[in-house]
Amino acid sequence: MTHAAALWLSSPAEQLKLKSWDTEDGLAVAYNVRTGDTHLIEDMALQLLGLIRLSPLSVEALAQQLASFFVEHDDEIIQEYVFASLMQLKDIGLVTDVAH
């Protein structure tokens, strides 16, 4: 599945606990209730999880909403970065992708 053909959704709230602080490094921690694992995540990942918590979104939609995070203005590069972040989150079981 290419990233253009997928919608992304985070784990349900009862399965994913997030903790963040208003600190410069923007780092946060995420607890996967299903696996019992705790993960250190970056600001971008935290924002992504917040955006797809309530309803699934495509990479394109996410890239648009997060554009202000990037110095880079090339949509394709931003989408690739968002996709790579989503794949990392998928690897640790915090998000899932479904066919569009």
Binding site: W21, T23, D25
Partner: peptide
């Protein structure tokens, strides 16, 4: 020191963090 990194260190240095699950995280 980063709060999030401190969190991870405390979790790693706990003998029974995993046993406590979500309560341990909180």
């Amino acid at each position: 020191h980063s709060k999030a990194r401190t969190f991870m260190l405390i979790a790693e240095q706990s003998f029974n963090y995993d046993i406590h699950g979500e309560n341990g995280f909180e």
